[in-house]
Structure formats: structure tokens, C-alpha cells
């Protein structure tokens, strides 16, 4: 029992200050490894301050001191009872070449579903344009796409001036940020139990299918491939990966791993969702640059064969990267 409160506070305050200092150091350098004596001291301080809080909790009027101790104990509790591994020291190359592709592979089912919904959207869009040409105006909201393919190809192939001169960097930035916003939205909609993600993927697929069918039907397949492949071979898979992230989130909410609680499932899915969306953002940076600096230039400025070959090469490299990269690290423990 505390007889003299002021004396009690005066005698215990050094321990509180010491614990506060340890916690401040941990906040500043969360990856720092503590020595065994330091760990023992930290645990001792945590238990001592907890005991002080328990003793002081009975004092109705000592609100300020009690709140201070509650904050200290709460922070120390978070540190001592944390069982999740602390984040690794930032290793961007390892993350990009090992963690990101292995995360994609680990959730291959979600990626397949994402691709299936997009393909379904493509088929719907293509069929809609072929069966009902008036659907073009509804399915293609962008003005340039509404132009007849033959007219557009003729205009762009005969252009003498570089219309994009002086705005290519802005164009690249716009493509990057716009597509990343779409990707984040597709991922975030996973929180609607995947319904929103599915709708966005299907809509993207519909747009893609409608445009492709329109150009193929007009006999402009070579132009279509030359225009879309250089950036689309990265951009479209990136959106599929964003859909994969959304479906991973949705899977956690719906209870794919039923042995775990709702919160545990979300806790487990969080890091993978973050890895996927950061990887998608990087891919979209590349796609934005290619779209602004290469995709918008057509023959005779850049021959279609070169553009198609470049896009096909990107697609192969991306597929190999996602399928193979980081496999060694997966076999090595503690990576």
C-alpha cells in the first residue's frame, strides 16, 4: 500500500524515465538488436512500471501520472509482446527481384482469377462492338478511341510534326500517376469483398476488348499491336497484379484460410498486399515512360516491327521475371 504518494512518485520516477528512454531509442532505430543484458533490463523496467501502474491505479486523483504510466506500459507492451518479425533493413533490389515475384507466385490463384475476369471483360467488349457497332460510343469514353481506326491510322502515319514535342515528360508523368491511381483503386476495392475489384477488372477488360475488336475488324491489327504492345505488355499485367492484390485482400476478408480468425487473416495478408501494390507502382512507372516516349510514335517514324518486337520482348521478360526471379531466395531460410 502506498502511504506517501509524493515519496512513491519521487522514488519510482527514475525507472519511468529510463523506460521512456529505452522506448524512444527503439522508436528511433526499430531494427537495432538489443544485447541480452539490455533486454533483461528492458523487461525488468516494463514489469516494474506495470506494477507501479497497478499500485497507482487505485488513486482516483492521480490522473495525469496514471495516464503517463498507461502510455509507457502500452508502448512497452507493444514492444515486448510483438511476435511478428521486425521489418528487414531496406534492401530494394532484394525486395524487387525476390520478395515481389515470390509474392506474386504465392498468390497465383488470385492472379489467375484476376486474369479470368479481365479476359471475360475483353470477350464481352469485343462481342459488344462486333454485334452492335453503336456500343462503341458507350464503351469507349475517350475521344481519340471513338475515331474510326482507319482515319486514325491514316492521320498518325502521315503526321509530319511531332505533336508530342514539349509534352512527353508530362505525358509520361500523367500515364504513371493515372494508371497507379487506377491500380490503387482496383486493389482498394478488394475491401468490398472483391466485388469492386471484379467490377473494375471487368470494365478494364471490356474497354480493352472493345478497342482491340474495333481495330482488328478494321484490318488495323498491326497498328494496334504496335501501339499497345510496348506499354501494354507491362501496363496490363500490372493492372492484373493490382487486381490480384485486391483479391488477396478480399480472400482474407471472406475467409479463405478458415482456420484463422478474421483479424489474423487480414494481419497475414497485409504485407503481401503492400508488396504487390508497390511492385505494380514500379511497373507502371516503366509503362508510363514507354507509353509517352515510344507507344505514341508510329511508322514511318518507328517501324511497327520494332515496336511489336520490343513489346513482345518486354512481355517475355516480365513473365520470366515473375515466374522465376527469387526462387533461390525462397529456398533459403530467413529471407
Amino acid at each position: 500500500m502506498i502511504i506517501d504518494l509524493q515519496k512513491f512518485i519521487a522514488s519510482e520516477r527514475p525507472y519511468w524515465t529510463e523506460l521512456e528512454g529505452v522506448l524512444r531509442d527503439l522508436d528511433r532505430a526499430p531494427l537495432r538488436r538489443m544485447t541480452l543484458p539490455a533486454l533483461r533490463r528492458f523487461h525488468y523496467l516494463y514489469e516494474r512500471v506495470s506494477a507501479d501502474l497497478a499500485r497507482l491505479a487505485t488513486f482516483g486523483a492521480e490522473r495525469e501520472t496514471r495516464t503517463y504510466l498507461e502510455t509507457l506500459v502500452a508502448r512497452a507492451y507493444g514492444e515486448t509482446h510483438e511476435t511478428r518479425r521486425a521489418g528487414h533493413r531496406l534492401r530494394p533490389l532484394h525486395w524487387f527481384f525476390a520478395v515481389f515475384p515470390s509474392t506474386v507466385r504465392r498468390h497465383a490463384g488470385a492472379l489467375r482469377l484476376s486474369a479470368a475476369v479481365t479476359v471475360a471483360g475483353c470477350l464481352f467488349g469485343a462481342l459488344a462492338v462486333m454485334l452492335d457497332p453503336d456500343a462503341r460510343e458507350v464503351l469507349m469514353p475517350l475521344g481519340r478511341l471513338l475515331q474510326h481506326p482507319d482515319d486514325r491510322v491514316a492521320r498518325e502515319e502521315s503526321a509530319l510534326d511531332d505533336e508530342l514535342e514539349g509534352s512527353k515528360a508530362q505525358g509520361a508523368a500523367w500515364y504513371m500517376t493515372h494508371n497507379t491511381r487506377v491500380a490503387i483503386g482496383t486493389m482498394a476495392m478488394g475491401a468490398t469483398w472483391g466485388i469492386g475489384t471484379g467490377v473494375l477488372l471487368f470494365y478494364n477488360g471490356t474497354l480493352l476488348g472493345a478497342v482491340a475488336a474495333d481495330y482488328v475488324a478494321a484490318g488495323q491489327t498491326r497498328f494496334l499491336l504496335g501501339w499497345l504492345l510496348p506499354h501494354g505488355s507491362v501496363e496490363i499485367p500490372a493492372i492484373l497484379l493490382a487486381g490480384q492484390a485486391g483479391l488477396v485482400l478480399a480472400g482474407a476478408m471472406l475467409g479463405r484460410r478458415r482456420r484463422m480468425s478474421f483479424k489474423a487473416r487480414l494481419r497475414a495478408a497485409g504485407p503481401d498486399v503492400v508488396t504487390l501494390i508497390f511492385g505494380v507502382a514500379l511497373l507502371l512507372v516503366w509503362a508510363g515512360i514507354v507509353e509517352a516516349f515510344l507507344s505514341q510514335y508510329h511508322a514511318p517514324t518507328i517501324p511497327y516491327a520494332i515496336k511489336i518486337a520490343f513489346g513482345a520482348l518486354e512481355l517475355v521478360l516480365l513473365t520470366v521475371f515473375l515466374a522465376r526471379s527469387g526462387r533461390k531466395a525462397e529456398c533459403t531460410p530467413d529471407t
Binding site: P30, G78, A188, G270
Partner: peptide, 20 residues
């Protein structure tokens, strides 16, 4: 939610889900 250390992925997820 359990009083544990806030992780980077938790911060990213809660911020990126703002559009919803």
C-alpha cells in the same frame, strides 16, 4: 488493434484504402 507495434504494411493498407 491489439496494442502491438504499428507496422509499415498496416500504415500503407489503411492509407491506400482511403478511396473506398
Amino acid at each position: 488493434e491489439q496494442g502491438l507495434r504499428l507496422t509499415f504494411s498496416q500504415i500503407v493498407v489503411r492509407n491506400l484504402l482511403r478511396p473506398v
